[in-house]
């Protein structure tokens, strides 16, 4: 399997995610946002960080980068795209994923570990979570409050396009376990074809016991299947 991590000015999780991909024998290439041609690959990763200093709106300027058109082509051909944190914000600004990410409800930057319930394991990113559907991953964001109107939320729920929801240690999805105020505790969503995943938590930060856990590894090993 081959991957491309897109690097924007202000990305700061690009190398972390590259380390994670390589750990699981995914052959990775870093791609500068100004390129127009995407190298041949199965997976594109939009990493976390603060592309363009979050100017205008988070992810907005990056979503107009030169590389974006070839990512859209990659998606049309069924290629996989994973957007983590700022990458999720970029996917929403490009229109590849629906909804919007508002500022955290309490207006504070959040940096902590949270519990997540894996809602959909029937996709290329999460299949190995079948055996462990309550996980712990770190979040680190200021604009992670996923917001959508009622009809979009209903569509996401009905078509099972929600990948992760914030929950407590027992897997209960309740308001109290929602760190940022997102609609229905949503932490990550998929597109209709389930070849795009956007998520606020950082799986690449928990891929080794030395980093206090391996719940993130399961996402990368899922990618390796098929």
């Amino acid at each position: 399997m081959k991957s491309s991590v897109i690097v924007f000015p202000g990305s700061n999780c690009d190398r972390d995610v590259a380390v994670a991909l390589e750990k699981f024998q995914i052959k990775n290439q870093m791609v500068w946002h100004n390129e127009t041609i995407l190298p041949k690959c199965d997976l594109v990763v939009l990493p976390g960080g603060f592309s363009y200093g979050d100017y205008l709106r988070t992810g907005c300027i990056a979503s107009k980068s030169k590389i974006i058109n070839s990512i859209i082509e990659h998606v049309k051909k069924g290629g996989l795209v994973l957007g983590i944190c700022n990458g999720f914000q970029i996917l929403i600004e490009t229109g590849l994923l629906p909804g919007v990410l508002l500022r955290n409800k309490k207006l504070k930057f959040l940096s902590k570990n949270v519990f997540l319930k894996v809602i959909n394991t029937d996709n290329r990113f999460c299949s190995n979570y079948k055996n462990k559907d309550i996980i712990k991953l770190p979040i680190a964001h200021n604009e992670g409050n996923f917001f959508a109107d009622d009809s979009l939320i209903k569509k996401l729920e009905d078509r099972n396009l929600i990948a992760f929801k914030y929950c407590d240690s027992q897997g209960k999805v309740e308001k109290i376990s929602n760190p940022n105020g997102s609609s229905n505790n949503i932490a990550g969503i998929l597109n209709d074809k389930k070849n795009i995943l956007g998520m606020m938590p950082h799986p690449e930060r928990l891929i080794d016991p030395i980093l206090s856990g391996e719940d993130g590894s399961i996402l990368f090993t899922s990618l390796l299947k098929s």
């Binding site: 709106r57 907005c60 107009k64 600004e93 919007v100 917001f147």
Partner: peptide, 8 residues
């Protein structure tokens, strides 16, 4: 196209 996110 750029200045506004017309969703919000």
């Amino acid at each position: 196209k750029l200045l506004t996110n017309t969703v919000i």
